[in-house]
Design a protein around this nucleic acid. Sequence first.
DNA 1: GTCGGAAATC
DNA 2: GATTTCCGAC
Length: 145
Amino acid sequence: QSSGCVNKPVWACTLLFPDWAYKPAWSPGSRQVQLWHFLLELLGRGEGGAVGWGGEWGEFVIRDPERLARLWGERKGKPHMNYDKLSRALRYYYNKRILHKTKGKRFTYKFNFSKLILVNYPGYPGPPGHQIPTGVHDVFCTEMC
DNA sequence: GTCGGAAATC
DNA sequence: GATTTCCGAC
């Protein structure tokens, strides 16, 4: 899954997402892919192109807005997708508490990972202010999912 | 660029 | 319900 730690913030290196975050497109659950699933998929893959992790916990930067929109449009079968419309979808996440805007930073948003508990490598301190239970070796979500 | 209402779409 | 589409306001 998440392979190299090159060009990634330290916290992103030990981060693994749940299966649904990686599900290619239309998983057996037959649910439509959600935009934030798609974003996690790209970010987790470290395909450093359209999007990449930012410096802060959960923060990500859209490096190539129109390319990201194109990819998203392909996934959803919306040929006329663009950043203007994609960003509107992102804005709807504000009230849903899935995302937050990093004000002042262009094309920069932030996941509400405060609700997402993750553990991977034993001993890893994890996100600021989190206690990692010993023995746990997987990722699971609480409220955000 | 970013915001958020409104209507349409699946 | 989660966007997609369109758009006026800042």
